[in-house]
Structures are given as C-alpha cells and as structure tokens.
C-alpha cells in the first residue's frame, strides 16, 4: 500500500516535470525574443541566452523609425479594416438570403460559393497580379483589400450561414406579415441575434488579413506600402547583423495582437474555432 502511494507520487511528480519542460520549450522562444531585444549586440554575441542588464526602450524607437513601422502598422490596419467591412457586409447579406429569404436555387448558389473555397491566393496569384496591373491597382492597398476580401467570402458565408440557421423562420414570416421589409428585419433582428457570429467573422478575418504576406509581397512593391509582415521581412534582410533590433522588430509586430488577445481572449478563440470548423 505504501509502495503504491509512493509510485503514484513519483508518477505525478514526473508528469509535473514533463509538463513544466514542455511549457518552457513552448514559451521560451517568445521570452528569448523579448529578453534579447533589451540586450546589446555585444551581450548577445557573448552569450545568446542571458538576462538583460537594463531595460532600455530606445532600441524599439530606433527599430520603429528604421522600419517606418508606424506606416506599416497603418497600412496593415487600413487593409484589415476595409477588408473586414467588405467581408462582413457582403457575406452576411448573402448568408441572410441563403438562410432566411425566399430564394430559389439556394442549394446551387451555396454549392458554387463553397466550391470556390479550394481556390487559394497562391493558386491565382499570377492572373491576379496581371489583373491588378491592368486595372492600375498594382502597388495600391486596395489591390489587397479587394482580392483578399473576395477570397474570404466562401468561408465567411459558411460561418454566417451556420450562425443564421438558428434564427427561427417563423420570426421572419410574422415580421413580413406585419409589413417589415427584408432589410429592416436583417438590421433589427438578424444582426442583434447573431452578434457572436459577427464577432467570430470579424476576429478571424481581421487576424488573417493582419498576418497576410503573399499579396503584400507581390502587389505592394514600394516602401511606403509595406505592411507589418513585409516590413519585418525587409528589415531582416537590411539589418541582418543588428540582432538587438531584429528581436525588437519582432516584438513590435507581436505586441499589438498580444494586447488585443489579452482583452478579447474569449472572442479570439471562439473566432478561430468558428473559422476552422466551418472551413
């Protein structure tokens, strides 16, 4: 009996150690990144893992200025904002027509939209590039906004459709009898009832747009149009040897999302799961 207890104690202790190790391996790269952004190049060259001697924030300012990071943040925000507005407006209206309104051929329309999901930005990158050039949109933020929104429609429509399906149709039918217009019903009933779905779509697609790289790399060639992802990548090729600043720019890229995540944790996770499950 005493032996059994000792074995169990040993097992639980070793489980704790294993979990602790796993956590360290998982989180340490990010901690390393933050710590080293406060250490000088000489300190890093002498010993890549160590604690900073002081917390000097001027390196962040330097990296910010060199990368023109304010501009990159603005561009990323601009793209994400308008993209999400377009996605939410267009996809929610389509999903509304697909679930609640009287439309013939719902299944066909829905299947066409869903089947477009296999098309990724990578597959149609070349014709999109040529199209943007012909439309005069190359090196213009709206090239990314419009193409990114269009490619996100299938998934967003699926998420919205899933959310709207729980709204009882009797509600709509009685509202119509009372003379309520379709648009009014959408704004006054569907939107308030499906708020969680809307927030999932916003979070998922905002995060997706914020982290987008391929279109930013291909369509936005000039320095003034860099987004956060291309700005940090260019920064890495320009300042290869300045490790302190490389760490600092990575931190700068993570901090805005980290702050949002801390405040909106539940919505983040719900949004990611919704996006994945419907995808």
């Amino acid at each position: 009996m005493g032996n059994g207890r000792r074995i169990r104690k040993f097992l639980s202790l070793s489980a704790k150690v294993m979990i602790g190790l796993l956590l360290i391996v998982d989180v340490y790269p990010i901690i390393w990144m933050f710590l080293n952004s406060f250490r000088t190049n000489n300190e890093i060259y002498a010993n890549p893992i160590g604690l900073p001697k002081s917390f000097d924030f001027s390196v962040f300012v330097e990296a910010w200025v060199k990368a023109d990071f304010g501009r990159a943040l603005f561009n990323s925000f601009y793209i994400a904002f308008f993209q999400v507005v377009i996605i939410v407006a267009a996809a929610s209206l389509s999903a509304y027509a697909l679930t609640i309104l009287n439309v013939r051929g719902k299944n066909i329309i829905y299947n066409v939209i869903v089947s477009l999901q296999v098309v990724s930005g990578q597959i149609i990158l070349i014709p999109l590039f040529a199209l943007m050039r012909d439309m005069g949109l190359l090196d213009h933020l709206w090239a990314n906004i419009l193409s990114g929104a269009a490619l996100s429609f299938p998934l967003a429509t699926m998420i919205f459709k899933g959310g709207f399906q729980s709204i009882p149709r009797e509600l709509y039918e009685s509202a119509v009898v009372d003379g309520c217009s379709d648009m009014r019903f959408f704004l006054k009933m569907v939107f308030p009832l499906a708020k969680p779905t809307f927030s999932s779509v916003v979070i998922y697609h905002a995060l997706f747009s914020w982290n987008e790289y391929l279109f930013a790399l291909t369509f936005l060639r000039s320095a003034k149009n860099r987004t956060v992802t291309t700005a940090i990548q260019v920064f890495f090729t320009q300042w290869q040897a300045n490790w302190t600043q490389l760490f600092a720019i990575l931190c700068l890229a993570l901090i805005p999302i980290l702050i949002l995540y801390i405040f909106l944790q539940k919505y983040f996770i719900a949004g990611m799961v919704a996006g994945a499950v419907k995808g």
Partner: peptide, 8 residues
C-alpha cells in the same frame, strides 16, 4: 504562437 504571423 498562433498570434504571430507565419512570416514572423
């Protein structure tokens, strides 16, 4: 780590 872009 899911909060970081794949580029980062």
């Amino acid at each position: 780590p899911m909060l970081m872009s794949m580029v980062a």
